[in-house]
Design a protein around this nucleic acid. Structure first.
Length: 414
RNA sequence: GUGGCCGUAGCUCAGCAGGUUAGAGCGCCAGGUUGUGGCCCUGGAGGUCGGGGGUUCAAGUCCCCUCGGUCACCCCA
C-alpha cells in the first residue's frame, strides 16, 4: 500500500466528486445570502477555553476535543463546532446587531469514525445574534429546512423543542430530579445526572428509558415568556408550511441552548447517525464568553451527512463538468498553448493534451473530457493560418481562419 | 475508549484441502487506421498479496502482533 494516507477519520474529496460539494456550498450560500447573511471566516482553532466555557459538561468538549499544546505553550483546540467561534468573534469585534453570518467550514472531533462520522467533518451553518424575536427563530429553522429541500431531500423530519430559559429551566430540573429520585439509571447517568438531568431524557439505554417513562416534560413547565415565544415560533413555522414534530425529549449535545432547539433527521439513512443538522437558540452564550448579554440562534448542517442522505434518496447527483473546447495540436503544442490561452481569456473554457501525443490519443482525451468542440491544428492548418473546428457530438467539421476562432467557437456554443 | 467483520494491480474482485514464474473484468498506455474521438480487435505497463513475527520442506492461503478500512456502542453533523 501507499506509505502515507489521509489521517484517521479524514477524507480526500477529489474531482469529479468534489463538484457536488461545491454545488452544495453554492446552493447554501445562495439561500442564506438572499436572507441577508454574510460570510464569516473564523479560525479553525481557538484557545481551548473558548470551547470549555460553552460546554464543559458535554461529550463534545469532555472527550472528543482535538486539543494540543502549540510551540508557544498555548492550549489550543481544533474547533469541535461552529457556534462558539462565531460568538467569540462577535464578542471580540462587536458588529452592529442584528449580526447575521454564515459559514462553510470544517469541524474536528477526536472520536472513532463510522458511517457518517469523521474526525474532520464539514458544516454549513448560520448564526444570528442580537435579537430574541421569535420571527428570527422561524427564519433560521425555515432556512435549514429550505436547504434540505433545495438538495432535493424529501424524507427529512424536523424535530422541535424548547429548552426554556434560566427562569423556568432550573425549576423544571428540580421537578425532574425529584421524579427520577433514586430510579436506576445507566452507568453513565447514575453517577452524574444531577449536573444536567436533561441528558437522562436523551439517553438511549434501556435503564434510562424506563426510568424516564412518564417524566414531566419541559414544554409543559415553560415560564410565560418562554411559552409565548415557543408558541410564536410554532405559529410562524405553521404559517410557512414548515412541518415539524414536537420532540419534548430533544436535548442536543451542547449545554448552551435555551428556548428553541431543533434537529433535522434523515429518515432515508439506516445508519446510526441520521442527523443531518441541528441548532437552536443560545441567549446566554455571548455573556458566557465575556461579552454583553446578546441573544442568538443558529444551526449547523453536516455536509457529509447531507450528501449521504442525498445518496440514499438518489437526488443531488454529481454535476458533470466539461470544458467547452478541446484543442488538438499535432505541431508540437505551441499552437495549443496560444489557443487555450486566447479562448480562456475570452471566457470560453478550454483544455488540451500534453506530451505531444498522437492525434488519435488527443481525440480520445477530448472525448473523455466531454468537450463540445475540438479545435484541430495540424501542419496544414498551421501553414494556412486556419483551424479545423469539429463538433464532437455530431461529427461535422469546418475550417476557419485562425484569426476568427473565438468568434466561430462562440457561435457554435450558443 | 470497547467490540464485530475485512485488508490480493488505479478500481471491483477470483485465487479451489497451504505446493511451480499471483489471475480476471474495468480503467490506463500503445498499435490495428502515417490528419480525427465514441464501437471493435491485438498487445503492453502496473502487485513488498497492508506491515512484522511465527508454524511448515513449502504461506496470498494457518497462528500471533501491529497498522489501516468498515460497521456498531456512547454521542453527534
Amino acid at each position: 500500500m501507499v506509505e502515507f494516507r489521509a489521517p484517521v477519520g479524514t477524507r480526500d474529496v477529489l474531482p469529479p466528486e468534489s463538484a457536488r460539494w461545491e454545488r452544495l456550498v453554492a446552493l447554501f450560500a445562495g439561500q442564506v445570502e438572499r436572507a441577508g447573511y454574510g460570510l464569516v471566516l473564523s479560525p479553525m482553532f481557538e484557545e481551548v477555553g473558548v470551547f470549555e466555557r460553552v460546554g464543559e459538561g458535554t461529550d463534545v468538549v469532555r472527550k472528543e476535543m482535538y486539543d494540543f499544546e502549540d510551540k508557544g505553550g498555548r492550549r489550543v483546540a481544533l474547533r469541535p463546532e461552529g457556534t462558539a467561534s462565531v460568538v467569540r468573534a462577535y464578542v471580540q469585534h462587536r458588529p452592529t446587531p442584528p449580526f447575521k453570518a454564515w459559514y462553510a467550514a470544517p469541524n474536528f472531533r477526536y472520536e472513532r469514525p463510522q458511517a457518517g462520522r469523521f474526525r474532520q467533518h464539514h458544516q454549513l451553518g448560520v448564526e444570528a445574534l442580537g435579537t430574541d424575536d421569535a420571527d428570527l427563530d422561524v427564519e433560521v429553522v425555515a432556512l435549514a429546512w429550505s436547504v434540505c429541500a433545495g438538495v432535493g431531500l424529501t424524507r427529512v423530519t424536523l424535530l422541535l423543542n424548547s429548552l426554556g430559559d434560566d427562569v423556568c429551566r432550573p425549576a423544571y430540573l428540580d421537578l425532574l430530579r425529584s421524579f427520577l429520585g433514586d430510579a436506576s439509571l445507566c452507568e453513565e447517568h447514575a453517577a452524574g445526572y444531577a449536573n444536567n438531568p436533561l441528558r437522562v431524557l436523551d439517553c438511549k439505554r434501556d435503564t434510562c428509558r424506563t426510568a424516564t417513562e412518564g417524566a414531566p416534560r419541559l414544554v409543559d413547565h415553560l415560564c410565560d415568556p418562554c411559552a409565548v415565544h415557543f408558541a410564536r415560533v410554532r405559529a410562524g413555522l405553521d404559517s410557512l408550511a414548515v412541518t415539524y414534530t414536537l420532540q419534548p425529549r430533544l436535548v442536543r449535545g451542547l449545554d448552551y441552548y435555551t428556548r428553541t432547539t431543533f434537529e433535522l433527521a434523515a429518515d432515508s439513512l439506516d445508519t446510526a447517525q441520521n442527523a443531518v443538522g441541528g441548532g437552536g437558540r443560545y441567549d446566554k452564550l455571548a455573556e458566557a464568553l465575556g461579552g454583553p448579554a446578546t441573544p442568538g440562534i443558529g444551526f449547523g448542517l453536516g455536509i457529509e451527512r447531507l450528501l449521504l442522505a442525498a445518496d440514499a434518496e438518489e437526488v443531488f447527483p454529481v454535476p458533470q463538468s466539461a470544458v467547452d473546447v478541446w484543442v488538438v495540436d499535432t505541431t508540437g503544442g505551441t499552437a495549443a498553448l496560444a489557443l487555450t490561452h486566447e479562448l480562456r481569456a475570452a471566457g470560453i473554457s478550454a483544455d488540451r493534451s500534453f506530451d505531444e501525443r498522437s492525434m488519435k490519443s488527443q481525440f480520445k482525451s477530448a472525448d473523455r473530457s466531454g468537450a463540445r468542440l475540438a479545435l484541430v491544428v495540424g501542419d496544414n492548418e498551421l501553414a494556412a493560418a486556419t483551424v479545423t473546428l469539429r463538433d464532437l457530438r455530431g461529427g461535422e467539421q469546418e475550417t476557419v481562419d485562425r484569426a476568427d476562432v473565438v468568434e466561430h467557437v462562440r457561435k457554435r456554443l450558443s
